[in-house]
Write a protein that binds this DNA or RNA. Structure first.
Lengths: 243, 243
DNA sequence: TTCTGATATTAGGCACTCCTAATATTATCT
DNA sequence: AGATAATATTAGGAGTGCCTAATATCAGAA
C-alpha cells in the first residue's frame, strides 16, 4: 500500500510511545542543544548527522522517534529541522551538568590531566545517578566552572550560553581574557597547557599572519607566542568573565 | 531448507566473529563466573536464565554468540552447559574488580551508605576505563576488601573464591567471624548495619528455631539477637579471614 | 518561473538482544 | 526399557539504531 501524500509542514504524528532514554537518545539531545545555540534555532538533519557521525536517514528516524514519545523530546516538522522541547532541554542540560561535573571531578579528585577528562566524562555522563551527581557536586563545593572554563549548569536549571568570542575573531591588540577552551582535542589541550593558555589568562592578539597563524601576547606582552589557527580556534575569550 | 542433524555433543562451530563487549555480554560473563563457582563447573542454560532474568532461548542464543567470537568468551557444548575461557574469565574478574572498587569508592569517598553502593556500582562497572580503575585504586590505597567484606581481585589477576560458609549452615555455639555479607538487598543491609552485623564481627549461633529464624550472640554473648532466616542467609562466615 | 543541486525522507536490510511457540534432547521414575 | 518430566534448542518475530539506495522536497540561480 502506497503511503498517502502529506502536507509538507505537517507536524509529525504523535503516537504515544513510552519514554526511552538510551545513550543514543542522549547524544542526539546534546547535539541538538549545542547546534541550536543560545537562540535555540532549528537544527537541520544534516548538521546533526555530521555532529553525531551518522547518516541523515538515521537522524530522520531518530527525530521521528523522539517527537513521538510522551513526553516528546523534540519538536519536529518534516524538512524544517528540530528544536528541543522543555523535556528535551531538561535532559540535555542535565547531561551537560553531568559532563562538566565529571570533568572537574576526574581532574581534581582522580588526578586526571587536563586532556584526559573529556573522553571519560563523555562515556560516564549517561550512567551516573542523581545521587552520584549530588555527591560529586558536594565534594567539589558546588563548583561554577569545569577545568576548561565552561560553566557548570545548576541542578534542574536550564543552562546559559555565555557570550564568548573565538580568539580568531577578536580585534587586534585588544586585551581579552580566556574564558574557555575546547575540550575536544587532547593534543591541542596539552599544547595549550604547555603554553600557559588556560581559562582566566589575559592576552592580546599581536598580529595575524597570512600563513594561517597568529601571534599572541600573554598579559604584559613580555614575549609573543605564535599559534596555529587550529590551536587558536580552541580558545574562546570574553571581555569580562561574568557573562 | 531443513537444518541438518548434529551430534549432540558437537562443539559449536566457531565462525570468526569480531569481538564485541556489550553490557549484556558483561552480565552473562559475570553470571557464568558466579554460578560456576570455585570449581569452575559447567553452568546450565536454566541457571543463567534465572540469574539474569531472561528466558532460556535468549541464553542459548547468547552462548552461541559468545562461543563463536574470536577470542571465544565461553566453551559451550549444546545441552552440556558453559564454562568461561581464559578470555572470558579475564573480563569477568575485571568486572568484579570494577564493581568492588566502585563500591568502596562510593562508600569511602562519595559517602554513599552501605546499602546504596551496589546498584550504582552495578551500572558503572561496565563503563569505567582502566585509568579510572587505577586512579580509584590508588586513592583508596590498593584496598583488599569492599564495604561488604568481599575480596577485591588484583588487577589482571584471576580472582579467588574464599572458603566461606553461610551462617545458616554454621554449627551451633561455635565462634565465627563474619567474612562478608550479600550486597544484593538494600533493606537487609540496613538491618544488618543496625544490628552491628558487619564483616569482621565475631558471633556464634545460639540456637536455631523451628520458625525459620535463629538466635545469634555477638562476641561475648552479652545479648542475643534473633534473625530471620532471610536475613541470616545474607551472612557468610569463616574461621579465619585469610582464606 | 523553471531548473538544478542540496537536503531530507522513505523503503528495505542488518546486527543486537530480547520474546513466545514449537520441537528436540536429556534425565528421571516406574 | 519405556514413559514422562525437565531442560535446551530452533524457528520466527519485535524494537532499537544503524546502513544504502531510491525518491521527494526545498532553495537558489538562470
Amino acid at each position: 500500500m502506497r503511503r498517502r501524500a502529506v502536507l509538507s509542514s505537517e507536524l509529525v504524528a504523535a503516537k504515544p510511545v513510552p519514554l526511552v532514554i538510551s545513550e543514543s537518545v542522549d547524544d542526539y539531545l546534546k547535539a541538538i542543544l549545542k547546534l541550536g545555540g543560545a537562540e535555540d534555532s532549528r537544527v537541520t538533519t544534516k548538521a546533526l548527522a555530521e555532529k553525531l557521525g551518522v547518516r541523515t536517514p538515521s537522524v530522520t528516524g531518530m527525530l521521528q522517534k523522539l517527537a513521538g514519545q510522551r513526553p516528546a523530546m523534540v519538536l519536529y516538522e518534516k524538512h524544517r529541522g528540530v528544536r528541543l522541547t522543555s523535556a528535551g532541554k531538561r535532559r540535555a542540560w542535565e547531561l551537560v551538568r553531568h559532563h562538566r561535573l565529571l570533568e572537574l571531578f576526574l581532574h581534581d579528585i582522580l588526578k586526571y590531566s587536563w586532556d584526559e577528562v573529556h573522553e571519560e566524562a563523555e562515556r560516564l555522563e549517561h550512567f551516573i545517578s542523581e545521587r552520584f551527581e549530588d555527591r560529586v557536586a558536594a565534594i567539589l563545593g558546588d563548583p561554577e566552572f569545569d577545568p576548561h572554563g565552561h560553566l557548570i549548569p545548576q541542578k534542574y536549571a536550564t543552562g546559559v550560553f555565555r557570550h564568548e568570542v573565538p580568539l580568531v575573531d577578536w580585534p587586534l591588540r585588544t586585551p581579552a581574557i580566556i574564558s574557555s577552551v575546547s575540550d575536544r582535542n587532547a593534543v591541542s589541550l596539552r599544547e595549550l597547557e604547555r603554553l600557559g593558555l588556560m581559562p582566566g589568562v589575559t592576552l592580546a592578539v599581536e598580529k595575524r599572519n597570512s600563513t594561517a597563524s597568529l601571534s599572541v601576547c600573554i598579559a604584559d606582552c613580555a614575549h609573543a607566542i605564535r599559534l596555529s589557527n587550529d590551536l587558536a580556534s580552541c580558545i574562546l575569550v570574553a571581555v569580562n568573565l561574568a557573562s
